[in-house]
């Protein structure tokens, strides 16, 4: 091995690193400045005393964490997890067939169908949530219609309860469930299904034993895309829940924007971040298992 060869290898190494830097640099810098630093500030704040008018007084304390263990806040967190879980499950049940339909459509229909899925994102989320208030309220369109047809005598309580909140969250994040599932279905292609049918599997068996297991990464990604923002949402519980169903996002918002208690708000925000890490760990586990299946190793 000559000196020259070693030099070329080192030069190649440098080039690879240079390339990595160019590709990753901008994203990493952005992430560092606009995500990691704020989260760091949040963590730091959570260990200090609140300032009387917002801000913090730099006296270390663990009181904020002790306070978060109060059953009041644990209860709110539990409600949030429950609502977000139900919303995710409903979104999955609605999205999987829809994604399957789109994936099986002829290629000239696929793009228009996908555009329809994301079309709602082109208007403000706030306006769409207000629109739901118009639809669901006791004197609203849905109740009026049902009364006119004679299906009900008294208006149904559709608004300002947990049902409305769940509905609002499903509506808001459904496209985020459809897209990753569609992507994984499309990646799978029709061959696996055809092979399964050749081996005399019924369509239901194919779906259960082939399609769903192989699109699990898409399902898990979709579930995370719906669960995580649902958990932290505060607009939907505020508007559609009428402020009577409180989720953790509302309490965090209240700490920062009404109670002027930044450190305690930071602790609550951290609790959501920790929950997300748990969810992401589950995802990683699922992905590894699927990878093993795909690689043909025993699961």
């Amino acid at each position: 091995m000559s000196v020259a060869a070693a030099r070329t290898r080192r030069a190649r190494g440098r080039r690879v690193w240079g390339q990595r830097f160019v590709l990753l640099g901008p994203g990493m810098t952005y992430w560092l400045v606009f995500f990691l630093v704020p989260v760091g500030v949040l963590i730091a704040y959570s260990f200090f005393r609140r300032g009387p008018y917002g801000g913090v007084i730099y006296e270390p304390t663990l009181k904020n964490y002790a306070r978060a263990l109060d059953p009041l806040y644990i209860g709110v967190l539990w409600t949030s997890v429950r609502i977000a879980t139900v919303a995710t499950a409903v979104a999955l049940l609605l999205a999987y067939p829809a994604a399957l339909f789109i994936a099986r459509a002829t290629s000239r229909w696929r793009v228009p169908l996908l555009v329809l899925v994301i079309l709602p994102f082109w208007t403000s989320f706030l306006i769409r949530t207000y629109a739901w208030m118009l639809l669901l309220n006791p004197a609203g369109l849905i109740n009026k219609l049902l009364q006119a047809v004679g299906l009900i005598d008294e208006p149904l309580p559709l608004l300002y309860n947990e049902f409305a909140v769940t509905l609002g969250l499903v509506y808001a994040y459904l496209p985020l469930m459809v897209l990753p599932i569609y992507a994984s279905l499309e990646r799978l292609g029709p061959q696996a299904g055809e092979a399964s049918a050749d081996l005399y599997a019924s369509p239901a068996q194919t779906l259960r034993k082939v399609t769903i297991p192989l699109t699990l990464p898409g399902i898990v990604a979709g579930c995370i895309f719906v669960f995580v923002p649902s958990l932290g949402n505060f607009i939907v519980p505020d508007l559609l829940g009428g402020g009577r169903t409180v989720m953790i996002g509302n309490v965090i918002q209240q700490q920062f924007l009404q109670a002027r208690d930044w450190p305690f708000g930071a602790v609550l925000a951290m609790s959501v971040i920790v929950l997300m890490f748990v969810v992401l760990a589950v995802q990683a586990q699922v992905l590894r298992r699927t990878q093993e299946v795909e690689d043909g190793r025993p699961a």
């Binding site: 290629s107 696929r110 793009v111 996908l114 555009v115 899925v117 994301i118 994102f121 082109w122 403000s124 989320f125 706030l126 808001a172 994040y173 496209p175 985020l176 897209l179 990753p180 569609y182 992507a183 499309e186 990646r187 895309f225 923002p229 949402n233 607009i235």
Partner: peptide, 24 residues
């Protein structure tokens, strides 16, 4: 190109969502 489009859609969608969540 279909697949590329899907990715693009997903990115636009997520960006829109984040913006909407942030409010104005």
């Amino acid at each position: 190109s279909d697949r590329f489009f899907v990715r693009l859609l997903a990115i636009v969608a997520v960006a829109g969502l984040v913006l909407a969540a942030c409010g104005s």
